[in-house]
Design a protein around this nucleic acid. Structure first.
Lengths: 127, 127
DNA sequence: TTACGTGCAAAATCTTTGCCCCTGA
DNA sequence: TCAGGGGCAAAGATTTTGCACGTAA
């Protein structure tokens, strides 16, 4: 376990304590509860650094901003077009990656599988 | 077949004539070869409209901008971290979507499956 | 000291939007 | 005529970066 700065650790803590796959802005607001004078730039810098080290993961669902995930275990995502929430789906892409490598000769390092639709709650509220 | 404006048709044409999954800026430059005074705003407006009608598809790979795809047939993507290019992978997500619906009760409308790694060319050039 | 990390603010993207004009049915 | 687009430029939103300062080893 590395020795992170207070700010970097706070970003990790916030990210690992939620399952909401938040944006940088949300993380910033949350961290400010502990470190009120942290800057948004620091949050972005740390998110980028932590992602490059594989400690956190970036999740792109096609809306206006990037989302981040403190859970780096193998799983996929569901994006609800209604409430815009991202939830975890226990789908393992390892086999597909291997198959693709074997078939094509590409070096496949990872995969992101994102299902899109309407969640149960939003479906209910439609009626 | 609808009757599109000259600009909108040009955006479609450019997008359908390439397999490069370009950004809005690239499409803009390309369309300008035909319609030199088209504006970037028009390109964005048309891309958004065409996507909402399901005529084109948006592809998010987590880099700085959105990419677009004129091929709406069922397929997945491979993103090369070296050359940043997106290529098609003939992987059908239909079954996974169905399975997910049955298991969870979510309304799954679509899915994006993006494999990330290094392509054959970039692997060669590394050595 | 010295490398690393931060706060702040400016800048750099990328995307959307308001306004007014034009055009085709 | 009139609704739907379009051009332009400004505004918005998100993200990155330069710089000077602080801090822990």
């Amino acid at each position: 376990m590395k020795n992170f700065s207070r700010q970097r650790q706070a970003v990790i803590d916030v990210l690992c304590s939620t399952k909401t796959h938040p944006s940088a802005a949300w993380i910033y607001e949350k961290v400010r509860e502990t470190i009120p004078n942290i800057s948004l730039g620091t949050v972005y810098r740390n998110l980028a650094l932590l992602e490059s080290e594989g400690i956190i993961r970036k999740v792109s669902v096609g809306d206006s901003s990037e989302h981040f995930d403190g859970d780096t275990s193998m799983h996929s995502h569901f994006y609800c077009k209604g409430c815009k929430q991202i939830t975890d789906i226990p789908f393992d892409t390892t086999d597909d990656c291997k198959k693709l490598e074997e078939k094509t000769g590409l070096s496949v390092e990872s995969a992101t599988y994102t299902f899109v639709g309407v969640c149960t709650n939003c479906n209910k509220n439609k009626n």
